[in-house]
């Protein structure tokens, strides 16, 4: 089956051919057929391919390879392969708890109204900072990580609802659900991306998925560290 990218490229090629006819011989627009050609080649095809292109780029921007293509994010991509399942990000990535090709987007998008849009706008700002601004020494989240993002998947799951430590004392589960007790900063799941200690870590190399350029891309560990 044809992929959306292939269809889009075909549409662009047809659009370029049609518009070339008009550029080379604009006098064809004297006839009714020429006027229709102009409308189709300057409006219909470019508008269609533009909207398809926008959609395609938006989908691509959700991929792990896209997020880790900037130098500053590459250590975070490598941290997904750390051979330490106490690292929340690595455990989720390696055990397919999140889609590997959308690992960053799955956990770092606010699951609230406009969450995706905010993430995109911040992404545009990141690109601006990458090329025209001052890249901070330490990459930090805009806001403390919200339990809501964890509960989007884990909420209602048996191993969460009945987890021994989650129901250790009365009211703890409710505190977690309401966000009063953070999943990450209260000592339970406190290692997100262990980028500080990457040099001393061993890396997981045991899946075919790690060699899939579309899913892992530059997130793969450096060869010498395998």
């Amino acid at each position: 089956m044809l992929s959306p990218s292939t269809v889009l490229i075909a549409v662009i090629v047809v659009a370029v051919v049609l518009v070339s006819v008009l550029i080379i011989k604009p006098s064809v627009t004297v006839t009714r057929g020429g006027k229709i050609l102009a409308f189709v080649s300057i409006f219909i095809f470019p508008a269609f391919s533009g909207s398809m292109g926008f959609s395609e780029h938006m989908e691509r921007s959700k991929t792990t390879a896209f997020c880790t293509s900037c130098h500053v994010m590459q250590d975070y991509g490598r941290s997904l392969f750390v051979d330490d399942l106490l690292s929340v990000a690595a455990a989720h990535f390696q055990n397919n708890r999140v889609s590997r090709d959308r690992a960053c987007y799955t956990c770092h998008t606010d699951y609230a109204m406009f969450g995706g849009m905010k993430a995109k706008l911040r992404g545009l700002n990141h690109v601006y900072v990458q090329y025209f601004g001052k890249i901070p020494n330490k990459v930090e989240l805009y806001n403390p990580y919200n339990n809501r993002e964890c509960l989007h998947c884990h909420g209602g799951a048996r191993n969460f609802e009945e987890g021994a430590t989650h129901i250790l004392e009365e009211g703890r589960l409710e505190s977690i659900k309401s966000g009063q007790l953070s999943c990450l900063t209260t000592g339970c799941h406190d290692t997100g991306h262990d980028v500080k200690n990457l040099a001393s870590k061993s890396f997981w190399t045991g899946s075919e998925a790690t060699t899939d350029s579309t899913s892992a891309g530059s997130a793969q560990p450096a060869q010498e560290e395998k």
């Binding site: 990218s5 490229i9 662009i12 659009a15 391919s49 292109g53 293509s69 992404g123 990458q130």
Partner: peptide
């Protein structure tokens, strides 16, 4: 514009 779009699709980068 269409050519620029075509080129942009060959590359998965910001």
């Amino acid at each position: 514009g269409l050519l620029a779009e075509f080129i942009s699709l060959l590359w998965n980068h910001p």
